[in-house]
Amino acid sequence: MPRFAVCVFPGSNCEEDVQYALQNVLGEPTDLVWHKDTSLEGYDAAILPGGFAHGDYLRPGAVARFSPIMTAIQKMADEGKPVIGICNGFQMLQEAGLLPGAMLRNQTLTYICRYLHLRPEQLDSPLTSGLSEGELLRIPIGHADGNFYADDETLETLERNDRVVFRYVNAQGAREDTANPNGAANAIAGVRNERGNVLGLMPHPDRCYQEELGTADGRKLFESLIAWTKERT
């Protein structure tokens, strides 16, 4: 049985949501691991949760990436195990150089907290393997810095190599400026590394894993992660 780790930093605030989704809802053993721990030995997948690690001081994720646990995260990434960053966790993976690009302040300059539509662009990733072709997801975002930026050359490489995993779209599944309120380049909501095992996304599947929360679409991403991890354990 795989074991999941959710890393907790001072200022993280979504770790228990992720743990609840994986453990209480889906029945997979999931531990919270403090950022000063140095090892993730015995874990088959790790999630960096949302929040405001270290108060988002300097830049979101900029201080967290120096936490001791990030050395263990790097090791897991090198071993090909799934490493997932949600929101602030995504920003940490970018700061650590494990994922490309960086987040600018939202173009509105406001914190945006609302449900958006997502189009999975690749179905062979740890979070999308259980989805069907053309399926749209309704998952909320909650962030001030989710305006994905990368230079043109990097964007081109990401597109060409199928590394954009999620895009913001409208309810019909088409790209539209109002469907991408933070202004992310190419409407990018989630990307993966070259190997495909490290994946970051700004939307929060941990806020919509059962119908009582508005949608249960987030649950599908966790189910994919569990299935993906089990196949490789």
């Binding site: 300097l58 830049r59 900029a62 120096f66 970018q94 700061e95 490309p100 690009g101 960086a102 600018l104 930026y149 990368a150 230079d151």
Partner: peptide, 8 residues
């Protein structure tokens, strides 16, 4: 390495 993010 710390104060700036060379990406942007």
């Amino acid at each position: 390495r710390v104060l700036s993010n060379p990406v942007l």
